[in-house]
Design a protein around this nucleic acid. Structure first.
Lengths: 410, 410
DNA sequence: CCGACCGGTCG
DNA sequence: ACGACCGGTCG
């Protein structure tokens, strides 16, 4: 039973407008917005009337406020305009959250977003993840409801197209586009939540050609590398730095060979190469290891990273640190730990104690960044992907300048 | 522009109910639902009227369908009932997805044994693995049909019991028992096929309490360690060697500490400890890293193994080398490679070139054993688990004798 | 074709 | 509780 929120305008007494709400200011804004949606879409009153199988004069009357729409009529009106009802209600100020979030529910697996339960709450949007005969409500802090719905619509469009090939996209490209769209449309969200609760779960829900979770492993992993390449390309090119996702085997081998370490590391142990341009020549000066989540798999990258650093190259770990603990909740706490008090998690030690990476860029804002001086001097930094928050470009630029100095390139 | 859903009932022409939609079936359902929400909440018409600051008769009129609500009124009505608008619209059938409904079933490649297709063929038994609307017929060489059926029956009994807890077994224990039963009952089969095509696939087919594949990852992995401990315990105890699965965290830490390497490796990087008994004292002299399949995950164990070897300990890799390539067939060729001609697979290099493990014990009989002298002198050995074929006990015994000599224990 | 991608599990 | 377990994918 859904009683979490109510949608209303508490300061206006219904009694006052019960008889003549047609003249009410809120009705004016509804009517004005309906008219604007129609004209923005380049639809004439006559065309709309035809679609609704009513007379043009009925459309005119509604838009002048002389005839009011009940809920069924409004729904069909918006349908004819192909406009989302919740976006509409949001725009005309009819959605107001009541209570703070979310009863906690115990869970099992296969949790995917329920399109019928997307509600505005204080400070964000609540979505419902349903699965195994139960559900869990997750609050996406700083997400507006229209933004979430737009992201869901785009992801659904992209992922469904994979089932019939209608857009001609590879899976990894569809995921990259969906993730890019979501990060841009919901820039204030925790990026790790966007990745894990929105994009991953919608992919699992919509993609049915192959087992979606296993497909996600392959396609999602490569999509993340493409996403990162694309994200930083423009931010770094102006600094004379090129970012290259090493998905093609020969490109990866070329990168490892230029560093002179291809005989000592597996051929597939670097995800992103960083090249600096100096006097028209292109030098590799480092790279990024990309992991959506860490688990024991972060160990894979440690040997290569240590070899790179020993050879004088920059070697960063880029991660969403995505991980939730279903028995308790579906809150995405990550594995690097949310607190600096108490014993550090095992994963932190790779960076803070062992210094196996030059730096760890973490995009789960629940993760605790390194605060005090670390034993290895290597740090975990945490931010969103907003250009003014994310220090990756400046860190990479500094690494390039250090590299030039060390190699006597001036 | 948000176009996720449209809200409407396409088969009903608006025109038909524009004048008198109050009598429309959809209005009835709206009105009935509003009434039900009120009564379910134990609110009287009078109480609701007071909250809305209207008369009780107005409430009555609305609930009888004599007076219809526009959108502003509906929003406030639901607000007074503390009921979610989106849930309401969903319940009265006003939310219709734009695209055809999402395909709910994504049962792609879940290949599980078809109990109806088990046939004797020359040299073995053919079973049918069904999934994705297609199937693959697999020949289990050297399996008699009665043996296969007995194994399937036992596995089904064990795995079904996990759904209702009827045998009181943990998942890993049920898997261990099933694997043990199968290996004993079908001793001439390729052990990797027993593991992968029989035990794994029956677990996926029968266990339904949690997502079976992910459950397998956890439970199957630990079951394998228990299985190995149990398998070699009796064969090695007579030689004064104890085999201990390091599933308990404190036992694992104790093993790493006795080797003096606990500060340099992650706490969970060894699966089986090997202890020798000398003059009533128990010395750790090595261990086994266990992997059902390799993938990139074998890298996890490399650093710990190299540290163990550098410190003078025996460090073996025990693997089923289980891997098939479904698009082509479901034959379990492994990743170490079936041929010694041509370029060695990347996985072989860990042992044969880099010598990162003392030895690799592989129980996929399709895998090619090291034949020529290897660069590292370290070898891949391949066999079944039959006591007269499996050289593991003698290799481990030799390692214990070498250890005693090196440490001056005589 | 051979390889690394990642998340639900459950002790 | 927090960690390592492993296999279908698809380039």
């Amino acid at each position: 039973m859904a009683r979490i929120f109510y949608f209303g305008i508490p300061w206006c007494k219904w009694a006052a407008c019960a008889v003549n709400s047609i003249y009410d200011a809120r009705h004016k804004s509804i009517v004005n917005r309906l008219t604007a949606i129609r004209t923005d879409a380049g639809i004439s009153q006559t065309q709309l009337a035809t679609a609704l199988e009513i007379g043009q004069s009925d459309v005119s009357k509604v838009e002048q406020g002389q005839r009011r729409l009940d809920i069924v009529e409004l729904v069909e009106w918006l349908a004819a305009l192909e406009y989302d009802l919740f976006s509409f209600l949001s725009e005309v100020g009819l959605l107001v959250p009541l209570a703070p979030a979310a009863p906690v529910v115990n869970v099992a697996s296969e949790f995917v977003p329920d399109p019928a339960h997307v509600v505005a709450v204080t400070g964000g949007t609540e979505i419902r993840l349903v699965g195994s005969g139960t559900h869990h409500d997750i609050v996406l802090a700083n997400a507006d409801i229209a933004g979430y719905r737009a992201v869901e619509a785009e992801a659904v469009r992209l992922f469904r197209s994979l089932n019939d090939g209608s857009l001609g996209l590879q899976n990894r490209e569809a995921i990259r586009v969906a993730l890019d769209f979501a990060i841009r449309r919901l820039p204030l969200l925790n990026p790790s939540d966007v990745y894990r609760h929105i994009i991953y779960r919608l992919y699992v829900r919509e993609f049915s050609l192959k087992s979606p979770k296993q497909s996600w492993v392959r396609a999602g992993g490569e999509a993340l590398e493409l996403f990162i390449e694309d994200l930083y390309k423009s931010r770094l090119l102006s600094e004379g730095i090129e970012v290259e996702a090493l998905i093609a085997k020969d490109r990866r081998l070329a990168a490892l060979e230029e560093m002179g370490i291809s005989d000592r590391v597996g051929a597939a142990k670097l995800d992103i190469a960083l090249y600096g341009i100096h006097e028209g020549k292109r030098y590799i000066f480092g790279g990024l290891h990309v992991k959506a989540s860490l688990a024991e798999r972060v160990t894979d990258d440690v040997p290569c990273s240590e070899i790179m650093m020993a050879a004088g190259y920059f070697s960063g770990l880029w991660t969403f640190d995505a991980k939730d603990h279903p028995p308790r909740s579906l809150v995405n706490y990550g594995e690097l730990g949310t607190s600096l008090t108490g014993k550090p998690t095992a994963k932190r030690l790779y960076i803070e104690r062992d210094g196996s990476f030059s730096i760890c860029f973490c995009y789960n804002t629940r993760t605790a960044a390194s605060y005090h001086k670390t034993p290895s001097q290597r740090r975990i930094v945490v931010s969103t992907l907003a250009p003014d928050k994310d220090t990756l470009p400046s860190v990479v630029l500094a690494a390039w300048q250090d590299f030039k100095k060390a190699r006597g390139l001036k």
